[in-house]
Write a protein that binds this DNA or RNA. Structure first.
Lengths: 345, 345
DNA sequence: CTGTTAGCGCATTCAC
DNA sequence: GTGAATGCGCTAACAG
């Protein structure tokens, strides 16, 4: 530590020139004698010179870095979104730093503060399931730093966001269950703090309504997405006097958990219990039977979030109208709802 | 943009005092009149003051941030390691930024440069499968910024690293296959740029040797971990005149791919083909038959990496002796190598 | 083509 | 207990 960082002054001194010239040469400025430039570049390489981004950012009030905050990244969803976003940002010369809030409101606030303190130029975020207060994001807005939400969005902030059509995806999933003969369809929902969770629940409800099926509160359970507990709720549903003949789960991990429980209880999926998930986790195609699920264009979510952020970054102070992108979902039918006809495999 | 960021000077002016006092109050320094301090704190809150970490870092030559570079984070392994590392670093007041090299050498170099430019205090890294030149990491060393490798380590740098006992894990996996009667055991290995890949290959070899089995080059295939190609190699192996009766795969995704191919070809796993993976991906327990695999203490890898980094960060300039931690692995036996006895499920 | 000067926002001496 | 002055490393006017 404390090993003196080589600066442009060191280079300037070593070469007997001024630091301005060094700076110009290093930043690829014109107006530098070709020979001088070469000497500077050589010397810089020789002494391991690395520009100090801190100083530059302090000066230019621009870091060239955007932050992404995600609540988790164990399931494939968030990593894929991040990759999509990162690709686009990198193309435009932005650096991306990723923060992991771990579904903790406190950590999320700390992340936001750290990113604000390090003066990121923009922020892409999907909030935790605990987040009810969005003040830590509103600060960014007030300071003119663009924010884009995705997946889980904040409805009372006037910011851009990227979502999928959760309502319609859920609707079609439940419709599919009805059309294949199910009448008692349960829904293992997410916490009502999450917009996507609420929208999926509404899609579920409306599908039942539209097909004249009763909405049985007994069959709707909202839980905190903690997989350990999914276990309890699925068993609870299956132990009901009139158990469901189908389950629409808030996401694939939950659905896969349900699928395993059903199998372990000796139920036949899809005959005794049909199951539908959400997101098309790669695991859904590997398991047996395959899991019917509502696919999301995951990579594209990240891309779109990046596009919007870039647009907003470019627009600068000008009054930028927030955009709200809704991407389509796609029902993928597999063995957990429909028996494969022989020969299909 | 360009909305003037509120600084301590703004606060000082508003209160008719000097910025020094404001600075002292804000950093929790002693020697500030209690009343003055309160006025300053109130004003700071009122105007949304956020300290500019860039300026502080520039001044103190310390950012309080460490970087983590990982080659991918779609599989569960790297995210879990990151979470483990992040927990520890956060406890000690460090901020963690994550970079994703996407298995691209070029991106990795860019990441390293960016982290260096933003003056991270330390670096935790697992390099890409393309990385043969480690100059972009050696710069950190030369500048006195501690580096800790994990999982995939650089052997010709004198730095700390955290690995698992890949050799022994592989050895015991292959031993298990031999002890359960397999004689033609194939190995779908990783690229020889990766230390863990090489160590696992050695473990495989030595197990065969120790049990007097021939090492058949035909049964050893090193591939680039690109899952699309696993397909080709597995089929190639199964099409051999004398196909293998067991496969030890470099990691679980590869093993799962193999398992699916075997099933699709109508083979019975484990009778016709036994399969072992590496890492105990959660998917391994879900699939049927369950995948026998060599488990790694994933979370602990991250923790240990963080511990070492923190120790090194504390040691500062003092000559710090690099540590090399090797964590144990654990063979988990499932249905892909051993038929469950009835009743076991 | 090159040198001089002036800050970016802040913590930290040193005075008082 | 407080203010004034200094400089972290750099870029961008401004003069030659």
């Amino acid at each position: 530590m404390a090993t003196h960082q080589t600066t442009i002054i060191d280079i300037a001194r070593a070469l007997g020139i001024s630091k301005s010239t060094v700076s110009r040469a290093l930043t690829g400025h014109a107006n530098v004698n070709e020979k001088t430039r070469q000497r500077i570049l050589d010397m810089a390489a020789q002494v391991d010179y690395q520009r100090n981004q801190l100083a530059i950012s302090l000066l230019t009030n621009r870091t060239g870095t955007v932050g992404i905050i995600v609540p988790e990244f164990i399931s494939f969803f968030f990593p894929k979104v991040i990759i999509g976003a990162q690709e686009e940002m990198t193309k435009s010369g932005y650096n991306v730093v990723i923060c992991h809030s771990n579904e903790s409101y406190e950590t999320e606030v700390a992340n936001a503060k750290a990113l604000l303190a390090s003066r990121v130029d923009g922020l892409i975020v999907s909030h935790t399931k605990e987040t009810r207060n969005f003040d830590h994001f509103k600060v960014f807005q007030r300071k003119g730093i663009p924010v884009v939400f995705f997946n889980r969005v904040c409805e009372d902030m006037n910011v851009s966001n990227v979502t999928v059509d959760d309502y319609n995806g859920a609707f079609r999933a439940v419709e599919h269950l009805i059309q294949t003969g199910r009448r008692r369809i349960a829904h293992l929902a997410g916490p009502d703090t999450l917009t996507n969770s609420r929208n999926r629940l509404n899609g579920y409800r409306d599908a039942l309504k539209q097909y004249g099926l009763p909405i049985d509160p007994e069959l709707i359970i909202a839980y905190d997405l903690n997989l350990d507990k999914a276990n309890i709720y699925v068993n609870h549903l299956l132990n009901l006097p009139q158990p469901p003949d189908a389950l629409f789960a808030i996401n694939d991990p939950t659905a896969l958990e349900a699928l395993n429980i059903a199998k372990r209880r000796g139920l036949c999926v899809p005959d005794d219990l049909a199951i539908v998930g959400f997101s098309d986790d790669p695991m859904s195609a590997l398991i047996e039977p395959g899991l019917t699920t509502v696919a999301q264009p995951v990579n594209e979510i990240g891309q779109q979030a990046a596009y919007i952020l870039l647009k907003q970054l470019l627009a600068k102070g000008d009054d930028f109208q927030p955009e709200r992108i809704v991407l389509p979902t796609n029902l993928i039918i597999r063995g957990s709802t429909v028996k494969p006809r022989s020969g299909d495999l």
